[in-house]
Design a protein around this nucleic acid. Structure first.
Lengths: 265, 265
DNA sequence: GTTTCAGCCG
DNA sequence: CGGCTGAAAC
């Protein structure tokens, strides 16, 4: 079973890229972020024609997540509050969370807030959001022990996940507090980074800023991840970044990352 | 010698269409309107690579004209005031006029104001602009007797130049005053419509509104013209509208019109 | 319907 | 640099 994550930066603008890649890759589950469209306007048909089922949670202009699955999914939930009723509704105003179960695996698709700049209001929102995420994942773990949490985390956990020209400590997406929040609220629950099961060296990135020709210079960041619970981590047979879509004309600034899991016994 | 006119509605957006059509058509002179770009940002190279010389007069966002010529042109002039120094500079604030001489023929490339709606301030501007045009053409005729005035005139001279659903008298581009202005300020100077030398029937159009599927229903207007002085009119061997570019994806709302002149003796 | 812009966001 | 908006132009 192949599960991919891709921040498409507008599904309507990237529709051709996304459907072509889905055809070529043949992944079973494709988690999209930054769809930037309300559910009623999501271009469902091109995906349905390829035989996929869609689950979307979108808004106008910003954010928005979707899961595209070959098999129908069960137990779909949108946002934090459907799972954590006591959580302040402000954490669900932005559409950043969608989840569902397929083949006994809960897929949690996240678009973690970017945070703008260290110390800003949006930065505090990001850190607060990651605390809610902990409660959310703990709750989900109780009903489904096998979870793949994937998406655009907007955090590069280690220095080797960032190109050499960037200064991690002073940069959004790599500050100590963000990394600590990711460790504390995700990793400590028992999740492990699928990519690092197979690849220990650096210079593998999933996002390159549109500016300053950063893709051509390979000045990227690895901020799109799959975090797996222990049994799934055991089942992972590969985790790869496909940089081809980043080379196309009018690309997303992110490129898809795919984990493959062996079938359960 | 082939001289074409085409309102491209942004040369940057239509660059591929324009270069492809130039290659296929092999015209000697291509007059563009609504280039919508300042001269410094005009995409010269793709045309120069095809062996053409460029003469541009553009502005940001609106209007803008250019002549693309296989042979270098002489006596290039931009705007009305370079020829008519006493004319109020307000008539040249919008970039709508460029002219040059090639092979003994003066090409005058015009983007006549649209006029918005009958009776509006812009309508009065259009009529005023057409009066200046008369002085301009008379002056040009003195130095170069052979003139091809072409471009987007935003006027359909006869009812048969407009699809049947439109009501000419009440519509911008076909009001009596606009038609009269075109007759008085251009035709009366001795110019004749090259297209009507060869084709007398209607339902031949050069512009179709983007709205209401007007191209598919062939609800168009013939508003892009070549007006020729008598000797050139005599030399004209064809004048044709190529509707193919209007069928492409992301087309201009106009399509190119080409006049062919036999070589002079 | 399509393009342009400024202003916003990342 | 490239998404998005909403207004203006045609």
């Amino acid at each position: 079973m192949k599960i991919a994550t891709w921040n498409v930066n507008s599904i309507r603008t990237r529709l051709e890229h996304a459907t072509n890649w889905l055809k070529e890759s043949g992944v079973d589950v494709l988690c999209l972020q930054e769809t930037k469209v309300v559910d009623e306007l999501f271009p469902r048909e091109p995906f349905e024609k390829l035989g996929y089922h869609l689950y979307t949670s979108g808004q106008k202009s910003y954010n928005g997540v979707a899961i595209i699955s070959r098999q129908p999914m069960e137990d779909i939930s949108v946002g934090f509050t459907s799972i954590l009723p006591d959580v302040d509704a402000k954490w669900d105003e932005q559409k950043r969370v969608i989840s569902g179960v397929v083949d006994g695996i809960r897929i949690v698709n996240l678009y973690v807030p970017n945070g703008s700049s260290i110390g800003s209001e949006k930065y505090e929102y990001k850190l607060g959001w990651l605390e809610i995420l902990k409660d959310y994942l703990q709750k989900q773990l109780k009903s489904t022990p096998n979870i793949c949490v994937c998406g655009d985390f907007n955090i590069a956990l280690e220095d080797k996940d960032i190109h050499e020209k960037a200064k991690p400590a002073t940069h959004i997406m790599s500050s100590d507090a963000e990394r600590e929040a990711l460790r504390e609220n995700v990793l400590k629950l028992g999740f492990a980074d699928a990519f690092r099961k197979f690849t220990s060296e650096g210079e593998h990135y999933s996002w390159w800023d549109y500016r300053a020709a950063s893709f051509n210079r390979n000045r990227g960041w690895r901020i799109d991840h799959h975090y797996l619970t222990p049994d799934l981590y055991e089942r992972a047979t590969s985790c790869t970044i496909d940089i081809e879509p980043r080379k196309l004309t009018q690309p997303s600034d992110h490129t898809p990352v795919t984990v493959e899991l062996s079938s359960s016994k």
